[in-house]
Structures are given as C-alpha cells and as structure tokens.
C-alpha cells in the first residue's frame, strides 16, 4: 500500500497553481486535505502523475460569512467550518452536517470543498450544497465560473470540475427567514459513511404554516437526491404537517442500492424514517427561528455559540 511515483508541486500563489494545473491537465490532481485521495493512491486505485499541493495557498483558507450566505475557501478544514460561529449563525445546517463527517482527526485535516469535489453520494456536504442550492467556484488559468450544485454533481465520485480547474470555494446560501434545518443519519459505526441520511430544510410563511419543505438524501442514488415534499406534507401549520406523507414521497423518489452493509429495501425504509425525523426537527427549528428573529444572520450573530 504505497503510491506509485508522482511529481509533487507546491505552488505558492493561486496563479502558479493554475499554471501547473493547466500544464498537467488530466494528469494533475489537487491535494488539499488528502483524506480520500491519499488512501486511493496508497491502494493504487488512483495514480495521478502530478499532485498539485495547494496547502501553501493560505488565502484559500477563509470562511467568509455575509447576510446572503457562507463562502468556504478550498483550504478551510471541516473542523474550522464546524467551529465557525458566524457560519453556524448564517446557515446552521453546515455545523449540523459537519458534526456527522467522519471523526475529529479527519475533520481536522479534510476540507469541505475537497469533500464536494470528491462528490461521494454517501457524504454529507454534497447533500447540504444540493439542498441549499449552493454553488462551487471553479478557477482556471484565465477565468472562473460558478457551477450550481444541481449541475456540479454529475455521478458517483464525478463532478463538473474539468482538467486544469481548481475548486477555489463553495457558497452555501443563508437560512431564509422563518426557516429551519436538520440533518439526521444512521451509520453502522460512529463516524462511518451513513447507511442513509437526510438533510432537511423547512420554510414557514407568516402564519407559521409550511411554505416549502425539501429533503436531500445521501446514499440514495448516484448523486445527492433532493426531494421537494412541500405538496406531500400539505400547507399545514408546522406542528401538524404530515411528515409521514413526506417520508413516503421521499421513499418513492430515491434509488438506493444494495451493498455489503445494507439492502436497498432497508435503505429506502430508513431514509423515510430519517426524512420524517429531519423534517419534523427542521420545522421545529423554523418555528424557533421565526420566534427569535426575522433574519438568520442577525439571529445567529446574537447566538454566538463559541467558534
């Protein structure tokens, strides 16, 4: 379990990194946290000829929060985003999801953007980005483009990132007013990839009735599966919505597969259970949010829960 030979590039500026990526094309691979890439290389399942190590590009480590959302830089570690009080205030789903990502030592090293680019449908962050309708900013020599989540994840472990491109940041939109989120998952062991997991976003209207409810499912298809359950759960008051009907809608939409840890049937059943739990919890949080403030940014800033 030793990697085959490769060239290690350690650019000191973004421009230099983009030059190397342009020169190496499909033979180049970006190294950020390395939590997925290095094991793949050690098992010789991946053999990039060039590793472009971006760990010296300190400017990419920023987590910027604003009223409209959170922009996470390519070098921001999971732990850094998880601990950011500002990020949690603007979009609480980030912390809710990151706490479920693997183990602390992996979160200390692994990066949020790296997880998005790795595009594992069993991972939490792709589901979060998909649910929130966020985007990934891709830079290449001579330009950048923002790719919306719906177009970014193209298949299992496949994304819209092209040869020569570097994902420099990801943007997670802020929690809308009178909205709440939750993330529920079941894994075999603490910290494992989830057998099933559901991120939920519920928005209420002025009368605290469900205005919109969506769920994003992990391990439920080739890419994160986002299901709009607004119609299924009915425009009921938050406390009286039919979350079981929403769960049924989720079960009908997803396409889980058998693997060595669980059958597709069990995953389908479990995803429904977790969808009901997550939606109910998100609705509860939305009511709380509506009581606290009209705007997520302000509410979160006051919360200031120690980052």
């Amino acid at each position: 379990m030793k990697p085959p030979p490769f060239d290690h590039h350690a650019p000191r500026t973004l421009a230099e990194a983009l030059d190397v990526l342009a020169a190496t094309g499909e033979h180049g691979k970006v190294l950020a946290g390395g939590q997925s890439l290095i094991p793949l290389m050690n098992m010789r399942l991946a053999a990039p000829a060039h590793l472009v190590d971006i760990n010296r590009l300190g400017g990419l480590a920023a987590v910027e929060t604003g009223p409209d959302g959170v922009r996470v830089g390519a070098l921001a570690r999971h732990a850094q985003v998880e601990r950011s009080a500002g990020a949690a205030a603007v979009q609480p789903l980030l912390r809710q999801a990151l706490r479920l990502v693997a183990h602390p030592v992996i979160r200390n090293r692994g990066t949020a953007v790296g997880s998005l680019v790795h595009a594992d449908p069993a991972a939490e962050l792709p589901a979060v980005l998909a649910l929130l309708g966020g985007s990934v900013r891709l830079a290449r020599r001579g330009g950048t483009r923002d790719v919306p989540a719906g177009e970014f994840f193209t298949g299992p472990l496949e994304s819209a990132l092209g040869p020569g491109e570097l994902a420099v940041s990801a943007f997670f939109p802020a929690l809308p007013p009178r909205a709440g989120t939750a993330f529920e998952e079941v894994s075999r062991r603490h910290g494992d990839y989830a057998l099933a997991g559901v991120a939920a976003l519920v928005r209420l209207d002025g009368g605290l009735r469900v205005a919109a409810a969506t769920a994003a499912c992990v391990s439920a298809g080739p890419v994160p599966v986002v299901v709009d359950v607004t119609a299924a759960c009915g425009a009921a008051p938050a406390g009286a919505a039919d979350w079981e009907a929403a769960a049924r809608a989720v079960r009908e939409r997803i396409e889980p597969e058998d693997d060595i840890h669980a059958s597709a049937d069990y995953r389908r059943h479990l995803t429904g259970v977790l969808a009901a739990r997550a939606l109910r919890e998100a609705a509860r949080a939305a009511v709380e949010h509506a009581d606290g403030s009209a705007g997520g940014y302000a509410a979160g800033s006051r919360a200031g829960d120690g980052g």
């Binding site: 059958s263 069990y266 479990l270």
Partner: peptide, 17 residues
C-alpha cells in the same frame, strides 16, 4: 440493522414505514 429489518419483514410483524 439491515438484517434485523429483513427478519422483521420475514416474520410479518408490524413494520413501521
């Protein structure tokens, strides 16, 4: 858990869904 789910189903017991 997946196998317990299967056992429950095979036993025909009440299966929450």
């Amino acid at each position: 858990p997946s196998e317990l789910f299967d056992l429950r189903r095979a036993a025909g017991g009440p299966q929450a869904s």
